[in-house]
C-alpha cells in the first residue's frame, strides 16, 4: 500500500509518500497566502520525485493548521495526533513529543501505540515559537543557521528580561551596544525560548524518552538549551520537519485498512 501525508503548516507545506517502511518522496513548498496551491505544487513535486502517478496512491491524509483547505483529500488528523503518530513510529520508546514550528509550540504526551494522552499548545505568541529566534537573528544580522551554532560557543548565562519577541529585539540591540558577545546573546535567546517550551512540557509531564520535531529541531542551540533545561537527552529524528507528514501518511494507511 502506498499512502501520502500532507502537512499544511503555517510557513511550509510538506508532502511525504510512504510505502511500507520506505519513504518514496519528501517535498516541501513555502505556504505563502495560497496554501492549497502550495500543496498542489509540493504534491506534483513528490509525484515526479517518486515517479508515481496519483492513481498509485491508495490513500491520502492531511494535517497541519491548513488541513481544512487541503486539496486531494478530506481525510485529516490534528497536528498533535500526527506528531505523536509519526514520532512513535520512528522512535517507539518516546512518550513526550515536543513540536516547535515557526508560529507555535506543542508538547504531546503519548501512549505506546502513539495515541495522544495529553497535550498543551502555545500559539499566537512569537515569544514561544521559532519566529522568536528568527527575529533576533535578523536583528543581530546573523544567518539563522549560524545563530543556533553560536550559542554552543557561549560559556556565560545572561538573563533576558523581555518576554515578548518585539521587546526582546530592543533588549538585544542594547546588549549589542554594551558589547555583549554574540554567542552569549544567542544562548540567552535560546534559553529563553526553551524555558517557555519546557514549562509547557511540564504541564503534560515528562515520561520516558523525549523527542523534538519540527523545523526548529535543526537548531543545535535550541536542542542544547532544551537538554540543559530539562536535564534529559532529547531525541531528534531524521528529517524532523517531515514527522507530521509521516504521521498523516501512517494515519491514511491505518484508516484504509
Amino acid at each position: 500500500m502506498i499512502t501520502a501525508g500532507i502537512d499544511l503548516g503555517a510557513k511550509f507545506v510538506k508532502v511525504l509518500f510512504l510505502k511500507d517502511d520506505e519513504v518514496l518522496a519528501r517535498t516541501q513548498e513555502r505556504a505563502g497566502f495560497e496554501p492549497a496551491e502550495a500543496a498542489k505544487r509540493a504534491f506534483a513535486a513528490a509525484l515526479s520525485e517518486s515517479g508515481l502517478t496519483e492513481n498509485d496512491l491508495d490513500a491520502i491524509c492531511a494535517t497541519g493548521a491548513g488541513r481544512q483547505v487541503s486539496p486531494f483529500t478530506r481525510e485529516s488528523i490534528t497536528e498533535v495526533g500526527a506528531a505523536a503518530r509519526g514520532t512513535t513510529y520512528l522512535h517507539p520508546s518516546v512518550r513526550t513529543v515536543i513540536d516547535v514550528g515557526g508560529e507555535e509550540g506543542r508538547a504531546v504526551k503519548c501512549g505506546d501505540t502513539g495515541k495522544v494522552e495529553d497535550f498543551a499548545v502555545n500559539e499566537q505568541c512569537a515569544a514561544g515559537a521559532g519566529s522568536f529566534t528568527e527575529t533576533i537573528a535578523r536583528a543581530l544580522e546573523v544567518p539563522l543557521e549560524e545563530f543556533g551554532k553560536l550559542s554552543l560557543k557561549s560559556t556565560k548565562t545572561i538573563p533576558m528580561n523581555a518576554q515578548c519577541a518585539v521587546f526582546a529585539e530592543s533588549e538585544v540591540v542594547s546588549l549589542m551596544h554594551a558589547k555583549t558577545p554574540k554567542e552569549d546573546i544567542s544562548r540567552a535567546v535560546h534559553d529563553a525560548i526553551a524555558s517557555r517550551i519546557i514549562s509547557m512540557v511540564r504541564r503534560v509531564g515528562i515520561s520516558n524518552e523525549v523527542a523534538l520535531i519540527g523545523g526548529v529541531a535543526y537548531n543545535p542551540g535550541f536542542v542544547d538549551a532544551l537538554e540543559r533545561g530539562m536535564e534529559t537527552k532529547v531525541v531528534v529524528p531524521e528529517h524532523p520537519e517531515y514527522v507530521g507528514a509521516l504521521g498523516a501518511a501512517l494515519t491514511a494507511r491505518e484508516r484504509s485498512k
Binding site: 497566502f33 508560529e103 499566537q124 505568541c125 512569537a126 519566529s131 527575529t135 515578548c164 519577541a165 518585539v166
Partner: peptide, 18 residues
Amino acid sequence: SSTCVVFAKSEATSLLRD
C-alpha cells in the same frame, strides 16, 4: 487577525502585496 505584533507584521506585508 493576529494579535502578536510579529505575526501581524507578516500579515500586513502580505496584505500590501495583495
